[in-house]
């Protein structure tokens, strides 16, 4: 018995060491920096400064919310469709969903620039038929498009996986008891896919709310998101303390939203994350 516990500890050790060094320690450092001034003394100065970033924070939350909502609305039907096809169709569709993830994130975002820019693919087409050019790049819409494009696989996959787990006889039973397609969706499929929706929302919302690259490249720096603010504090302003306190508040917000989301999932039984 002792031997087994020792063995399992040994197996878990590399990960525990890894997470201690690269997760726990950085987190402590973030908290540490957020409450210190450059000379290392305790201060609430940087926390107080957060007030200036209130609107940035709100806009970030709003963008992430809109992107998450669009991802959800697009993903749900796709996941439903996928889960009701033959094995081969499912595999092919899964491949198509995953395919963009094989490409580098930067390249993916850059290619959107060439598509959306004023002399890009879409505007060239529109000009040719006398409808353009239309300002596409450097708009809030472009930023949200970038978020949706980059994060949608993380919404599709968890929803698809819970839908696959809904037993076919359950749907037949609903059929048998007189419910048409809409009723089946409302009473069985939707409630039973809540855990997938919750983990999808978490997996899209969290990176979307903290992104900085997408807003810089597709938003043209016009819309400053909280991720941009953090990045500039660390990379250009060299103000680690303010950067850390911004990160801290973002982390707190994310934790709160995850807590609320998981509450949802708990009620309906089962959480995925």
């Amino acid at each position: 018995m002792n031997k087994r516990t020792f063995g399992s500890r040994l197996v878990a050790a590399p990960y525990l060491v890894w997470s201690a060094i690269f997760v726990i320690v950085p987190l402590i450092m973030v908290v540490f920096y957020a409450f210190r001034d450059p000379s290392g003394r305790f201060t609430l100065q940087y926390i107080a400064e957060l007030g200036r970033y209130g609107s940035t924070l709100l806009i970030s939350l709003l963008y992430a919310f809109i992107a998450t909502l669009i991802c959800l609305l697009l993903s749900y039907p796709v996941a439903y469709f996928m889960s009701h096809r033959s094995q081969n169709v499912q595999k092919t569709m899964m491949l198509l969903v995953m395919l963009p993830m094989w490409m580098n994130f930067l390249i993916r975002t850059y290619s959107w620039i060439t598509i959306l820019s004023n002399t890009g693919v879409i505007n060239t087409l529109l000009s040719n038929v006398g409808l353009g050019p239309v300002q596409l790049i450097n708009t809030p819409g472009a930023v949200i498009l970038g978020m949706v494009y980059n994060y949608i696989p993380y919404m599709i996959l968890p929803i698809y996986s819970v839908m696959c787990k809904i037993d076919k006889p359950l749907l037949e039973a609903a059929d048998d008891l007189g419910s048409g397609s809409f009723m089946k969706l409302r009473k069985i499929i939707l409630p039973m896919s809540v855990p997938g929706i919750v983990s999808g929302i978490t997996m899209v919302f969290v990176p979307a709310v903290s992104t900085f690259y997408i807003s810089q490249k597709l938003g043209g720096g016009k819309t400053l998101l909280i991720g941009d603010a953090i990045e500039s504090q660390f990379m250009s302003a060299n103000n680690y303390n303010l950067g850390a306190s911004l990160s801290l508040i973002l982390m707190v917000l994310i934790l709160i939203s995850m807590f609320i989301m998981n509450r949802f999932a708990d009620e309906d039984g089962g959480v995925l994350i």
Binding site: D167, P169, L170, E172, A173, A174, D175, D176, L177, G178, S179, G180, K187, I188, P191, M192, D268, G269
Partner: peptide, 28 residues
């Protein structure tokens, strides 16, 4: 199936796991 005047008892019951006993029975 949903318009037929027959009902089925399934091999592994196929009770709706997201509902309690009352809601399962009341479903139809």
């Amino acid at each position: 199936a949903y318009k037929r005047q027959v009902n089925t008892i399934f091999q592994r019951y196929a009770l709706f796991p997201n509902m309690n006993v009352y809601d399962n029975i009341a479903f139809g």
